[in-house]
Amino acid sequence: MARALSPRRLLITTVAAWTVALIIFFPVLWMILTSFKTEASAVAMPPEFLSADWTLENYTEVWSRSDYPRFFWNSVVISVGSTLLGLLIAIPAAWAMAFVPGKKTKDLLMWMLSTKMMPAVAVMIPLYLLFQQLGLIDTKIGLVIALMLMNLPIIIWMLYTYFKEIPGEILEASRMDGATLWGEIIYVLTPMALPGIASTMLLNIILAWNEAFWTIVLTTTKAAPLSAFIASFSAPQGLFYAKLSAASAMAILPILILGWFSQKQLVRGLTFGAVK
């Protein structure tokens, strides 16, 4: 709206919006601040802000007492692995549903999404037993498969909505130009849908990174990612606020940073193409 704006109005809306934003962000900020305090300072009443004893000790301690690099690496492998595997399976399916739709395509999409509504707890025991039978308990492969299947409907849905925006004529043109099916997908569809594929990938890495049910149920030590690490950390050592905060910060910072860098694509991806 190209309308002259009174400086007073700008000031009011800016102050109000920043206040709201800071309130929403405050818990994360407070956790990060706490992670740099000594334990005594962290639990001091009244709470200490400027007068706190600042220290890096919590981080060094969490680092030395736990096997953070391994948890971190497991998180990376599991979230990236399950997302890439999911994309590999989902891209052809989304292509088919977007460009060769049949009468049943919409029902099929609905059904896929409905599998997401099944509560994980409800099928926890059978899946645990199945994974045990297959020797997949506490393996990265097992978690990659489980999280891939968990997020597959979302990946397919997101890709479907992106692919739908690509005009079918362009794919037909490539077919006239002599491209095979794979040529069509590799040279034309994928590059055109790259922004969409990227935001699908980001969102699913974040979902997989933050998944905290299957990662806890299906792992013990070897393959446990950061979500399991933090769950184990909070139980016995719950009273060490500063260390808990440091561990929490270490668990969420990688994805927080990734998310901040990609928030534009993310928001678009999250809406399932339903909001332009």
Binding site: P167, E169, I170, E172, A173, S174, V188, P191, M192
Partner: peptide, 8 residues
């Protein structure tokens, strides 16, 4: 094609 269908 009507929309030219160029590869963008």
């Amino acid at each position: 094609f009507q929309s030219y269908a160029l590869y963008p």
